[in-house]
């Protein structure tokens, strides 16, 4: 009972924070226009270079060009969703250093809730997510895939699952700052791998890479497996259920992130930073 009231209170508070976040956003004006242009430009550049290569090297690891575009844009859309809610998680190290975390600790609300609710990055709705979704739609059309209810459900579930997954990963990696003071570099490190997963079907690098991205750093569940599910290639996967597992894996990774954050916080409380 108390757990339920606490959860309800937390949800109410989060909505309030979001409301406040909304009001402090400036999504119009030159700055935002420039950034929107920049993000779209960057991704168009990226995709067209990829397309240059794909048209020369048809059937890259058995994937057609539109499939790779779908792969790329799926990742982009998930990234946009993660940025929308939790872009600022990668600044946990700053928050520890500049005393923001201390401020959170003297308030009667879970620090994790305060951390997540602290900022809200509305513009990513238009930037990464918008670009990604448009790309997904185009790629689906290019592949001639109809929007069956089943596909819509797979897409939605995979977007949610992927978002949870990326959030959990960022939370876990950024929380390493409790031990190492700086943590952004860990995020850059996985960014490199993320780029590879975003651009190329994991099989290009060999089966070992597919396994690593499935069991070790399960980024394959952000785009590789969902695209398999969407294009009806589920039976090519190691196990035919893997392409549908994004929500499950995402929740598990998020749980890991929360555990690391909690451990870090305990350490912070006992040692200072």
């Amino acid at each position: 009972m108390t757990a339920i009231t606490a959860a309800r209170r937390n949800a109410r508070l989060y909505l309030r924070f979001l409301g406040a976040g909304f009001r402090s956003q400036t999504i119009y004006g030159f700055d935002s226009a420039l950034l929107l242009f920049a993000v779209v430009f960057l991704n168009v550049v990226d995709l067209s270079l990829l397309a240059v290569m794909l048209t020369r090297f048809e059937a890259l690891g058995g994937w057609t060009m539109w499939e790779v575009v779908l792969l790329y844009c799926m990742f982009l859309a998930v990234l946009g969703l993660q940025y929308l809610f939790t872009l600022h998680l990668n600044r946990i190290d700053e928050f520890i250093q500049d005393g923001t975390l201390d401020q959170m600790l003297v308030r009667p609300v879970s620090p994790l809730l305060q951390l997540v609710a602290r900022e809200f990055h509305l513009r990513n709705l238009f930037h990464h997510f918008g670009t990604g979704i448009v790309g997904v739609l185009i790629a689906m059309a290019g592949l001639g895939l109809a929007w069956t209810p089943e596909r819509v459900a797979i897409l939605a579930a995979s977007l949610v699952g992927g978002t949870l997954l990326l959030t959990g990963m960022v939370l876990a990696l950024a929380s390493l700052a409790f031990w190492t003071v700086r943590s952004q570099v860990f995020l850059f490190g996985t960014a490199e791998i993320q780029e590879a997963v975003q651009h190329y079907p994991a099989t290009v690098f060999g089966q070992w890479f597919v396994r690593a991205m499935t069991f070790l750093l399960p980024l394959a569940f952000v785009n590789y497996y969902p695209v398999m599910a969407l294009t009806g290639r589920a039976d090519e996967a190691m196990h035919p259920l893997l392409p549908y597992a994004s929500p499950l894996v995402g929740s598990a990774v998020l749980a890991v992130g929360v555990v690391v954050w909690r451990a870090g916080l305990r350490r912070y409380e006992s040692t200072g930073n």
């Binding site: 090297f57 690891g61 570099v185 850059f188 490199e192 780029e195 190329y200 290009v204 060999g206």
Partner: peptide, 24 residues
């Protein structure tokens, strides 16, 4: 820790690009 992570990043980056070209 930051230095070692940077070193690992560099290795990952080099390995990824080498693998891509080998595949192509």
């Amino acid at each position: 820790a930051v230095y070692w992570a940077q070193l690992v990043n560099a290795v990952v980056k080099v390995a990824a690009i080498a693998l891509v070209w080998r595949a192509f």
